[in-house]
Design a protein around this nucleic acid. Structure first.
Lengths: 198, 198
DNA sequence: GAACCATACGGACCGACGGTCCGCTTAGCA
DNA sequence: TGCTAAGCGGACCGTCGGTCCGTATGGTTC
């Protein structure tokens, strides 16, 4: 049962691939502009290696994404308020969404690559389920917000990578503007709102 | 100057292609399962014809989509309340979003095909701009709702085809449930909500 | 209805891409 | 130093979107 150690070259190659892919995606305006051959070539590695390591294109993108987002996940799972679990839900929910948005702004191309990964919708990815669960749980603790499930989906949808890309790219909306618009929007969803009885 | 009439065979072929594609997309669980060759074959038409007519795959999907959604557009542009322009904005906004959702529920595969059309994000499509414009204009007329631009995007994002597909498919949410959840959500966004001042 | 021609047809063809296969190399262990 | 499992890499494959061009035909004109 002593697990054989991972071979040094395997490790080295994995890192090389990850680094190369990261760089390539960052440079290319569209994820489609980056082929698996490109990645293999840039990493100085054979295609077979690439696919054995990551299974398929989606696997590679996911691995990259997970690596990048890990710090944020840690902050959410065990960090200090307002992101961490100890924050009052009413503060935490907006903080979560702002964090997601900021992440996507900072990693536009990668997020885009992930969400259009070709095989399977973004909703298949494990990390989406995690975000949704976390947000829903947070919303559940805010008494005035019913129906956490759909609401969590809808709020997360407001931070979709292609929307962010569209607003930042075509509409030239600044990051700050997007963040404050999102914050205002989230606040609207979260604040109770009196029955509009006319 | 006298515009030459469209040839009869051209017209016939276009209709055949549209019908075949419609059918194929409806049957296939994923848009990727329908290739251009499939469409050509099913329509009894050469590939060249297909591409001359519709330019590329995206063009075909768009043409299909536009044809299907035209009645709804008409209803919005010149129909009776609550969809038509004469409806009070406060009624019309939820009606618009419900209509979009219903359309996507009724045309899941086609909507999916359009939104992942490969070349270009859904936000490039003319029809999205139209929906956004219409919704934003409606929101603008509701005094208590500021910042129509982002809000309109965010609300529309809650009806994204892949989300609908996920909820209906994987999570087995019924159409009625989705509609009522969306309605509640929209109502939250639209109703003023008192300053939560603590 | 014959002749003419713009229009459209269709399928062979192409380049690119994701993914597989398998003979060769090498790291790690004894 | 030899043995072997793990890893390597790139030739190869099937598919797909898209193009090209020789051929067929609908429409028009006389």
């Amino acid at each position: 049962m002593t697990q054989r150690k991972e071979r040094a070259d395997a490790l080295r190659n994995r890192e090389a691939v990850l680094a190369a892919a990261d760089d390539l995606f960052a440079r290319s305006p569209s994820p489609r502009g980056v082929s698996m051959d490109d990645v293999a070539a840039a990493a100085g590695v054979g295609k077979g290696t690439l696919f054995r390591r990551f299974g398929d294109r989606t696997g590679l993108v996911r691995a990259l994404y997970e690596a990048r987002i890990q710090p944020l996940r840690d902050a959410v799972e065990s960090g200090p308020p307002p992101l961490g679990p100890s924050a009052p839900p009413h503060d935490r929910a907006p903080a979560l969404l702002d964090a997601v948005l900021r992440f996507k702004l900072d990693n536009r191309h990668l997020a885009l690559a992930l969400e259009e990964s070709g095989s399977g919708s973004p909703y298949q990815a494990e990390h989406y389920a995690w975000w949704h669960r976390t947000l829903q749980e947070t919303l559940r603790q805010i008494p005035s917000v019913p129906d956490g499930d759909f609401t969590a989906h809808a709020l997360l949808a407001a931070t979709r990578a292609d929307l962010v890309e569209h607003l930042a790219g075509q509409e030239h909306m600044t990051a700050e503007r997007m963040r404050s618009d999102l914050a205002a929007y989230v606040s609207r969803v979260l604040t109770p709102g009196r029955e509009s009885g006319d």
